[in-house]
Simulated assay, not measured.
Amino acid sequence: MSFATLISAEQLRALPGPVVLLDCSFDLGDGSAGERAFTAGHLPGAQYAHLDRDLSGAKAPGQGRHPLPDRTAFAARAGAWGVRPGVQVVAYDAQGGPYASRLWWLLRWLGHDAVAVLDGGLAAWQAAGGTLEAGTATPAGGPAYPASDAPAMPSIDTGALLAALGRVRVLDARAGERFRGEVEPLDPVAGHIPGATLRCFKDNLLPDGRFKPAAQLRAEFDRYATPPEQVVHQCGSGVTACHNLLAMTHAGLAGARLYPGSWSAWCSDPARPVARG
């Protein structure tokens, strides 16, 4: 049995066979904080996946703060972690799952189905009696992952999204104050894409940090009354949007698209429309 969306701490502890554990903990305000936390304590056998170095590509004008990595380069990185077809991968973080969700999406993008996010993250593991180990980790090593010929997860670029406005449902995963344009701590322009609907990624979670039940998530996303194929997920830079994509997929609503550049790419051109409020 493999897991393709979420896995509980109890299920992870009971898993037989090889498992690739990847700690994706990160802090957008301090790019080394996640790695320091990993060194202080992580799931036994886990390796560290850094948002900027491992889960993003080189920055280029108009591509946003965390562009997708080159697929060939990411396939090599996945292989170095020990990811093989059919091998279960479990990603986690200590921030509610946004960075682990980014890794989940990227591996699915390569064509790897057996990847899940640890529901509740590091805290849930400890609450279930799981232990931690300290220190750094050396990648397992191995050949590049044999990625599918074409990306296995759909995405949309800025030009195509601009042309599609009014015909797609854009869901914005940022906090409400950023969506409304009241504050903007990371990007040069405040506001949101015209017509977008706020769906903060934290709305997918219960108070204890675990995801809401699949039926509840489905009811909440069904309120948008849009087929998944007509939904575009975005956030500040294409990271927390993956949390909403994971939630929809877990709820049985697969097929929505990611806008990788998100607000950081959209607002890079002053000619593009901006909404506030």
Rank of each mutant, 00 (worst) to 15 (best):
M1H: 14
M1D: 14
A9I: 04
E10K: 14
Q11W: 07
A14H: 06
C24L: 12
L28Q: 07
S32Q: 15
G41E: 09
P44H: 06
R53W: 10
R53L: 14
R53Q: 15
A58D: 13
K59C: 12
Q63N: 09
H66W: 04
D70T: 10
R71I: 03
R71W: 08
R71V: 04
A75R: 05
G79A: 12
G79N: 05
W81G: 00
G86E: 11
V90F: 11
A91C: 12
Y92V: 02
Y92L: 02
A94R: 15
Q95D: 09
P98L: 14
L103Q: 03
W105R: 01
L106Y: 06
L107V: 12
R108F: 12
R108G: 15
A116V: 07
A116Q: 03
L122Y: 02
A124V: 03
Q126H: 07
A128W: 14
A134F: 11
A134V: 10
T136R: 14
T136N: 13
A137M: 11
P143N: 12
P146W: 14
S148M: 11
A150L: 15
G159N: 13
G159F: 06
R167L: 09
A173H: 01
G176V: 10
F179M: 09
R180P: 04
G181M: 14
E182I: 12
V183E: 09
P185K: 11
D187Q: 03
V189C: 01
G195C: 06
T197A: 15
K202H: 11
L205W: 13
L205Y: 13
K212C: 07
A215Y: 12
A215P: 05
L217N: 05
F221E: 01
D222R: 13
D222V: 10
Y224D: 06
A225D: 11
P228G: 04
Q234Y: 09
V239A: 09
A241P: 06
C242N: 01
C242T: 01
N244M: 08
L246E: 00
M248I: 00
A254W: 06
G255Q: 05
A256M: 08
A256T: 02
L258K: 03
L258Q: 01
S264K: 01
A271I: 08
P273D: 04
P273V: 00
A275V: 13
G277P: 02
G277R: 13
